[in-house]
Design a protein around this nucleic acid. Structure first.
Lengths: 210, 210
DNA sequence: TTTGGATTATTTACAGTGTTAAGTATATTT
DNA sequence: AAATATACTTAACACTGTAAATAATCCAAA
């Protein structure tokens, strides 16, 4: 059935174009400036056509949120050749922060905006992307503990602590809370770095106790 | 000038009613369901009247954000009679988390939504509320260091680390990221508590080194 | 090849949003 | 009482997401 197949492809093609247009809009003009009508303008279809390919706007955002995770995964490639798990953990934190600051809109969708999670609830499935990312963090911590780099403790709790710290740093920064508190704008990033360093350093010391 | 004075009072009275209506709406129905028209409905004025008392919607949100800080301050009253600075720090963290989880809408306005910060930039002034809160944290840390409860380090960096951690915990929770990762909903709060405990415990241990 | 049915796209419409400008009523001052 | 200043409303603009009805296109069978 070559024809049904081609139709399938065309359908996917338009879906792709809708997502590309959305992405362009929301990377360049920010989350709140993405509207169905503006997406429609870019792909040169009428606004309601979009609803033939996506159930609603949130479904578009859900897809973009997934693309964000792909991007982050891509960035984390440089972790593969770091054998020391503590160093790897450090780099992981640096990557996470860099990703968040360089892609604030994607970061928003992945970790701040409620829409993708609501979509997930609606679809009745797990948050696979988030789960995979957190598992990776947890595995690294377990490895750190097994090899004696850091003190032994509940790895799930520790994962949450570390994730919270880096998420806190990124989200306070992108939501302009740090700029308002650290007078010289060029000091914000160094401060964030130092905070991460403190965290890693503290973990490092914990492994040397007793 | 009794008459001008009375007018002044009336003006403040209506401002207050607008803020009260806004607060009711956004506490009960959430940030995104607060609209000028619905506020107008409640106070029984036409929508445009509101613009005689506030420059725009963001100015209303800015005021609500300030009220949030008052509420948090109120909650922190219980810190006054804790003399041990490390215990005080712990309670401070617990308060912060409790406040965030019990008042997610206020928390949003204070630490997540960009609007109040944009208003601040527009007005060209400092973020006094945030500054005061962070200073309080910093002072507590300095006291901890001076009395040997925790290891000495840059208090500003450490403040940021701690604030990031608790902000991370609260915001991941309220934005439904934890619910999606921790299967049993009733385990979320305990996990958050344990993360805070880990943080305080780590600081505690750091004070006992050497 | 033409008809009929499915697919795809558009037009129209609804109910909402923040905000501005113009008009009206009320209160105060001259 | 007339003029002015203040307070408020009406009407309007330019948007938003989305549903229903309509029109156009495409493909298969008669």
């Amino acid at each position: 059935m070559g024809i049904a197949e081609r139709k399938e492809k065309q359908k996917l093609e338009i879906r792709k174009r809708i997502l590309e247009a959305s992405m362009k809009l929301f990377v360049e003009e920010g989350f709140s400036n993405v509207s169905i009508r503006r997406i429609a303008d870019i792909i040169e279809y009428s606004p309601t056509t979009i609803y033939l390919y996506f159930k609603d706007k949130d479904e578009i955002f859900y897809n973009l949120h997934e693309m964000g995770f792909l991007k982050l995964q891509e960035m984390n490639r440089n972790l593969d050749d770091i054998h020391n798990p503590l160093l790897r953990l450090h780099k992981m934190g640096e990557n996470y922060i860099q990703f968040g600051l360089e892609n604030p809109e994607f970061y928003d969708l992945m970790f701040i905006q409620p829409e993708p999670m609501e979509k997930l609830t609606e679809m009745g499935c797990e948050w696979e992307n988030g789960d995979a990312a957190l598992t990776r963090l947890r595995d690294t911590l377990v490895e750190c503990m097994e090899k004696g780099y850091i003190a032994k403790t509940d790895p799930t709790v520790l994962s949450l602590s570390i994730w919270s710290t880096v998420h806190g740093l990124v989200s306070l920064a992108t939501r302009q809370r740090l700029e308002k508190l650290i007078p010289e704008k060029e000091n914000v990033l160094p401060m964030i770095r130092q905070s991460l360093n403190w965290l890693i350093n503290t973990l490092d010391i914990s492994g040397k106790g007793k």
